[in-house]
């Protein structure tokens, strides 16, 4: 009986819940990435007007991923979602060089936010399937990521469309959330 209750306890131990904020400029690929994570059909993606939220199981964690629209007029609403964030995922369109400066500025402003202080950040350098995509290292340098000193950061090449690199990024997320929690 004791053993049975122990087994029941072990089995029903709730996965650690992680709150993940998925941000970036419009058309960076946030919603495609979210659907890729949730193993959903990615053939009909339209610009996100509000937000999408999905829960994904990964490596013993329940990841609650909040995907907020990235159009300029919507960005002021990002701050409504900052509270209790465990991990920030920032998605960049690696092929859209004309907007690297804009996306870098938005990221820098996010990192200055008090409510996101110390929150680890994963930057997905998305759309690596495109020939015109800049490599992750070039983006890291161009966005001055080396200025980030107060938190862990990682940049991961990926293609949300093909799925390449997405799981590697999520592996980093799961490991560093653990580190933060303890």
């Amino acid at each position: 009986m004791g053993l049975l209750s122990i087994l029941r306890k072990l089995k029903s131990a709730p996965d650690q819940e992680v709150r993940i904020l998925l941000l970036g400029l419009d058309n960076g690929g946030k919603t495609t990435l979210l659907k890729q994570l949730a193993s959903e059909d990615i053939s009909h993606i339209t610009p996100t007007q509000g937000f999408n939220i999905k829960s994904v199981q990964s490596q013993g964690f329940k990841l609650n991923v909040w995907d907020i629209g990235g159009q300029r007029k919507i960005r002021p609403y990002w701050r409504n979602y900052f509270e209790n964030t465990d991990m920030l995922i920032y998605v960049i369109d690696s092929a859209d060089r004309k907007r690297f400066e804009e996306t870098g500025q938005e990221l820098a402003e996010l990192l200055d936010e008090e409510k996101l202080s110390g929150v680890p950040v994963l930057i997905f350098a998305n759309k690596q399937d495109l020939l015109t995509a800049a490599p992750a290292s070039e983006i890291a340098e161009g966005l001055n990521l080396h200025i980030i000193r107060d938190r862990m950061w990682q940049i991961q090449s990926c293609s949300a469309l093909t799925g390449e690199g997405v799981q590697d990024g999520m592996s980093w997320v799961c490991k560093n959330v653990t580190a933060k929690k303890k």
Binding site: R151, M152, W153, Q154, I155, D168, S171, K175, A179, K182
Partner: peptide, 19 residues
């Protein structure tokens, strides 16, 4: 104290900063 490290076999390539 109290730091429970990550599983060392799961360390992936660092392309950024660990602190």
């Amino acid at each position: 104290k109290n730091y429970k490290g990550m599983n060392l076999s799961k360390i992936t390539t660092t392309v950024g900063l660990n602190i």
